[in-house]
Amino acid sequence: MIELENVSKSFTLHNQGSAVIPVMERVNLTVGAGECVGLVGASGAGKSTLMRLIYGNYLAAAGRVMVGDLDVAQAAPRHIIARRRETLGYVSQFLRVVPRVAALDVVAEPLLAVGTPLEAARDKAASLLAQLNIPERLWSLSPTTFSGGEQRVNIARGFAYAYPALLLDEPTASLDAKNPRHGADPG
């Protein structure tokens, strides 16, 4: 499903004396279909960078980043977009959506993107929000307006469409002790 071959990544800061910050070198990783792999390490070890390389958010300096049969390190944007829409989900603790859009619609959007009818997408979104303990009266509000909204809505959004592969980058990092359990059991 996901296969990294000799992947290296460094950042060149052109505006700061062209400083080069190496982050990882010749990483290999294979994740088969149905496998669940955990990445652990200290802060700055490159866990998030690895996730972002797989998602295509960061550009690999060398090596191959295969998601299915697509090398994300080389692929045209439209192919990565399609892969993200159909195959590869990504949940972080940060939510990047249009401001002031209702939580329900934020969660439903990935389903609409694959052609799910509006009603069905909203029904699924509603059941996810309920599972994540978000009271119905908040569903029409923007996720940024209520406590823990961004994180929980982000998780719901990540699970709305059944992606064959999902990248979870500390999605529960800023949730309190009571809520992670709901987050960890999306059904």
């Binding site: 052109h14 960061y58 550009l59 944007p77």
Partner: peptide, 21 residues
Amino acid sequence: SGLTDQVLDDPQHAYTQLLVS
């Protein structure tokens, strides 16, 4: 040029880095 979030989050060119920062 490239994927939008990649260009914004991992800009390769000096000018893009300046623009984003």
